[in-house]
């Protein structure tokens, strides 16, 4: 169970770095081109959702490892 929790935590590190990059770059882009804020926001959410997907797969795997005992 503790290994599963460790794995879930490591997955969150990766997803956190990824989503942080997306958010930071989106802020940069909005600062440079405030008129493109709508497009940037939509793509930011989409990309963040895709990165999140990888973290969620890890989370569910951790859940299964825990359930399997």
């Amino acid at each position: 169970m503790s290994y599963a929790a460790l794995g879930a935590g490591l997955a969150v590190i990766g997803a956190g770095i990824g989503i942080g990059q997306i958010g930071g770059k989106a802020m940069d882009a909005i600062a440079r081109q405030p008129e493109a804020v709508g497009d940037i926001r939509a793509n930011m959410i989409l990309t963040a959702a895709l990165v999140e997907g990888a973290a969620l797969v890890c989370m569910v795997l951790a859940f299964f490892v825990r359930a399997a005992g």
């Binding site: 959702a49 895709l50 999140e52 997907g53 969620l56 797969v57 989370m59 569910v60």
Partner: peptide, 10 residues
């Protein structure tokens, strides 16, 4: 679709 279902659920 797998990530789609997991994202909402999780």
């Amino acid at each position: 679709p797998f990530t789609l279902l997991l994202r909402l659920f999780a």
